[in-house]
Design a protein around this nucleic acid. Sequence first.
DNA 1: TTTACATCAGATGTCTGATCTCTACTGTTG
DNA 2: CAACAGTAGAGATCAGACATCTGATGTAAA
Lengths: 242, 242
Amino acid sequence: MTIRIDSRHLYLQVIDRLKDDIAKGVFQEKEKLPSEFELAKSLGVSRATLREALRLLEEENVIVRRHGVGTFVNPKPLFTSGIEHLTSVSSMIRSAGMEPGTIYLSSSKSFPSEKDIERFQCEKDEQVISIERVRTANGEPVVYCVDKVPSKYLPSDFLRRQEGSIFAAIEETGNIRVTHAVAFIDPSGFHAVASPILECKPETALLVLTQLHYDDNDQVVLFSKNYFKADKFSFHVVRKRV
Amino acid sequence: MTIRIDSRHLYLQVIDRLKDDIAKGVFQEKEKLPSEFELAKSLGVSRATLREALRLLEEENVIVRRHGVGTFVNPKPLFTSGIEHLTSVSSMIRSAGMEPGTIYLSSSKSFPSEKDIERFQCEKDEQVISIERVRTANGEPVVYCVDKVPSKYLPSDFLRRQEGSIFAAIEETGNIRVTHAVAFIDPSGFHAVASPILECKPETALLVLTQLHYDDNDQVVLFSKNYFKADKFSFHVVRKRV
DNA sequence: TTTACATCAGATGTCTGATCTCTACTGTTG
DNA sequence: CAACAGTAGAGATCAGACATCTGATGTAAA
């Protein structure tokens, strides 16, 4: 019996551990994993728990299981991590091999519009913080971002410190975790505000991501509109048949 | 082979059964499911098997489980079925509440280009079929489609019959099933070919979906490039934190 | 009456160890 | 050499137990 430092469920810890090991190449050798019996023993969990983890890893296409044969790691992380995985703009830029930066244009606190009230399901007197930024990749402007978030979700000193990710600030309190988002994808030609800021020629198209970010209680905690300079950026998504 | 009547794994059958029951509203009552013990008994499977099914349903956001409390059906199919689910253009149009139609522009059989050979991993002498179509919604052109598929994946009489989905034709033989695709998302301003065909004004932006369709052996079986008239169409994707 | 704490029932989480079924391999046989 | 039967080992499923969490209830103290 191991001491539970981590309070999360065991099967989740097993998943992380296995993903780590696969990433590190521990199991890579001939793309075959030890048998469930041995794996469970070496991880210190029961086979039932291990199987719950393996089943989810199979659903995620990390591994493949063949009845009577064995479990194999899937040798094709070729096209994972598409837009269907929620990550910050910073890490999107970084994973494209470039250095992210931020230029703050403005930030303000104001009372919510009717749309805001509907989006956030908040009261009329709950103030909303709006932030306008330009994100850069290797110094070049690539994304124009407009974010809106009810001030109750942010630390009180947020407006003063002009740095850091909004995600991190929202989750700083420990009570909220952004778990998923719905992103609406639209193309745009010339945009009166974004195009000049991004130093686009009029014929350069933009990709607009309008996003509603939810926490684990399905509350909208962040609304954002991102204008991507598409010639410097590429999006993909893995589509699965159902 | 792969002819499976009901020899699929038990946990998969349980998932289907539960989804069915939820869809039929059997469990709807107060959004609470029977306990795992009772459910397992009534389904005639062990608790371990039931739990594998429940774990996947939870991952799919169909249900929510709370330790010590119970299992609940999730009352929010609000934003499922985004672009991350692979469906045909026809059903995308239909689910937008419009009637899909097709205009065939051209279709031809030719030897593969170097890009084709790389995409499909085929031989130089294996011919490739190219199809050019316009898809309409309520009679109005909304998508310009260019499809490429090695002729070996299609029935020999395919070029003569100018109708039906390519998906269906590929799967007609029974040996191939398109399981997933990787879609690259790009905006486009004026496009010399697509814009006139779609009767777009020059300033109307297009959304371009360049897709590689895979079968269950991770073979590319279909390449397609779709130009969506974005003012008539809307895309969204559910992004999950990992 | 209200608050705080102890207790308990019932649910999910985890473990153990067994049996069933499938697959790849191997040696035998005609 | 091909066809077949046997076998070992892997995942699939099962049955039952104990652990832990949560919500509700009852009881005693403020």
